[in-house]
Design a protein around this nucleic acid. Structure first.
Lengths: 192, 192
DNA sequence: GATAAACGTGGTCATTTGACCATAATTGAA
DNA sequence: TTCAATTATGGTCAAATGACCACGTTTATC
């Protein structure tokens, strides 16, 4: 049972100690080193993943070898490839650690059983999904609308703690601009 | 009871005639004219929406008055502002018709009741949500990765029937490029 | 603590893109 | 069917952006 997961459930649900322990003990704990992959494109995503500590990124590599980052998942959030998990088909994306990371993993069978048994876990699950959809929409809008500078500022506002934990090239990749453009923006903002 | 909705449920579930009629009769039918809004930013999204006929677009208007289109919803798909619907908070986006459109509307209470009564509707609901998440991810990736030409080609492949139904400026808005860029691409492709 | 790898910044230059404008064609509403 | 509004295209020009390269710094790992 991971203490961070316990903290998370206490803060986000009104589940009893017992049930929390039940959920937590069903999971396996996995430690990832920097750059280690949790899910590799081509493999099937077989777990729900809670990030207890550290930082994951979900990304895909295009034909030219460029990486495009779909999302970052810091501690106290969840991640998985929904499509691959649901249909048990090979995933098209990678999920990897950008720093030493600890995750909790539930198999589909186990997690479904927990969902059946625990109504409040269902509720939490729904919330996470709604938030996911909402974030995706926001991300699409930000990607479409702003100038590179606005996107960068938006990123800093939205994830103030990630800036110092990630190499700039990953932020550039997430924002859909070249590193050059990003450093130009930073240069301009310094001298202003 | 709208015949298109019946068709849709028959094709996508194994629900009985009776139940299908029950679901359909709970909805109200609304007709939208071209450019008419189904949901206006600031209002609360109070319905689940099935598009029986026509085409909706979800978009937001930025500070400069530019429209950015998040998604198109053609016949036999669903749409709503999840955030606003769930929390009953004012929506930040608009949903409007790009052509004469017929939609079916369920209030939250009614739809939740149906969800409770009909397990297979729950299943369908889950599927729609998964697909939504998956599409969003694909959309983010496409927006990040390709050249404008690749994005345009991708759009045509993915929505072959929408090209002729939408003004180019909306496609440009959806793809995050200026109309100029889009017509340039079309020009190039013609002379090749 | 040493060393190789990764990283952030900056210069240059070619290319792409958008803003503004005009015009012809198409569309939709009366 | 007609007429006004919308739409698609194209010209021009300035600005933004990315590719390539080099250099000094920081970081990770042994």
């Amino acid at each position: 049972m991971h203490p961070e997961f316990e903290k998370y459930l206490i803060a986000n649900t009104s589940l009893t100690e017992d049930i929390i322990r039940n959920i937590g003990n069903t999971a396996t704990i996995k430690t990832l080193r920097r750059n280690e992959l949790l899910l590799q494109a081509g493999d099937i995503c077989r777990h729900k993943v809670f990030i207890a500590k550290g930082l994951l990124r979900m990304y895909s590599t295009d034909a030219n070898g460029n990486e495009h980052i779909v999302q970052f998942s810091p501690e106290h959030t969840w991640t998985l490839d929904v499509e691959s998990y649901d249909k048990e088909t090979p995933s098209l994306i990678n999920i990897g650690a950008t720093e030493p990371t600890e995750v909790l993993l539930w198999t589909k069978d186990d997690f479904n059983r927990l969902l059946n048994e625990i109504p409040e876990l269902r509720k939490l699950s729904q919330q996470i999904i709604s938030r996911n959809i909402y974030y995706s929409r926001q991300r699409i809008l930000t990607t479409l609308s702003g100038t590179p500078e606005e996107k960068y500022d938006d990123f800093i506002q939205r994830f103030p703690n990630l800036l110092s934990r990630l190499p700039l090239r990953m932020i550039a990749s997430y924002l859909g601009m070249s590193i050059k453009t990003l450093t130009r923006i930073r240069h301009t903002q310094l001298h202003r």
